[in-house]
């Protein structure tokens, strides 16, 4: 079993403190969801875990089992078993999707035990078909010219190829049509096992109908303010964040306070 343990995490971006003491434990075998208003720090949390250089940890710690992530580079964290499906994946001209995924798999293997091309292609074909992606996608440049939905699907394809221990999925459902949402959910559910844990960031309860979480966390003002089960997402959908905030007596201004 692998455990991602976040304790009292404070993170600063561009001299502004965004995370103000996050505590969270994600174990393999578990599915967690994080919900919360725009700009509250959800992506910041995921980037800080992955090690994006713009996000500075000023207090607290992130451990993957006994490894202190703060002491590891981005690629070391990835090879230790972390994966981040990004809210806005980069486009990289000239590097094909297939070449990239093979390099990512090989980065986890030692020099004398690189994946052979046939095994790789077989695996890629299988996962690709599972996600209803065309063969041509593999030979296209990494995310270049991909539609929003195609990029999300491609993030899931990479996850299935790399088989991380803990995956953070930042708004993997945004911009997906109904069918694509089902396909992507199928991918995540397929990964579900005792050796895989995930932390999904989402705005929509709908995703959680397809991927039923064990835990739902609500983040507001840079902290996790409430944790519950799958049913909590439904309640949030009905009552909004302002209701929860007032119920908890928190002093936080929400961006879209006056929306309704």
């Amino acid at each position: 079993m692998t455990t991602l343990k976040i304790e009292n995490l404070h993170v600063t971006v561009a001299d502004k403190e965004i995370l103000k003491g996050v505590n969270l434990i994600v174990k393999t075998g578990e599915i967690h969801a994080i919900m919360g208003p725009n700009g509250t720090g959800k992506s910041t949390l995921s980037q800080a875990i992955m090690g994006h250089p713009a996000y500075q940890v000023t207090q607290g710690s992130i451990y993957l089992d006994d490894k202190n992530l703060s002491e590891m580079s981005v690629d070391e964290r990835a090879r230790a078993g972390l994966f981040l499906a990004m809210q806005y994946p980069s486009e990289i001209q000239g590097v094909t999707n297939a070449e990239f995924m093979r390099a990512a798999i090989n980065a986890r293997r030692d020099e004398h035990n690189q994946i052979d091309i046939m095994t790789f292609i077989r695996k890629l074909d299988e996962k690709r078909a599972f996600l209803s992606m065309t063969e041509e996608m593999a030979e296209r440049y990494l995310n270049e010219g991909f539609s929003g939905g195609e990029k999300k699907r491609n993030e899931i394809l990479q996850m299935m190829m790399i088989e991380p221990k803990i995956a953070i999925l930042d708004e993997i459902d945004s911009g997906l049509d109904i069918d694509a949402l089902k396909v992507v959910s199928r991918g995540v559910n397929h990964m579900r096992s005792d050796d895989f844990g995930t932390l999904m960031i989402t705005h929509y309860q709908r995703l959680l109908d397809y991927i039923v979480p064990d835990f739902v966390h609500v983040m507001m003002g840079g902290r996790i303010v409430k944790t519950g089960g799958a049913e909590m997402a439904k309640k949030l959908e009905d009552e909004g964040y302002a209701g929860l905030r007032d119920e908890l007596g928190l002093d936080i201004t929400l961006t879209d306070e006056d929306a309704d």
Binding site: M50, G51, H52, P53, S73, V74, D75, R77, A78, R79, F83, L84, M86, P89, S90, I92, Q93, G94, V95, E99, F100, M101, A103, A104, A107, R108, Y141, Q158, I162
Partner: peptide, 20 residues
């Protein structure tokens, strides 16, 4: 960062970008 977040070393990532 994107390439490295998939486990590629900085060197490999640069090489891929240049080759691309």
């Amino acid at each position: 960062y994107y390439l490295m977040s998939r486990g590629l070393s900085e060197k490999t990532a640069r090489k891929l970008v240049i080759r691309g």
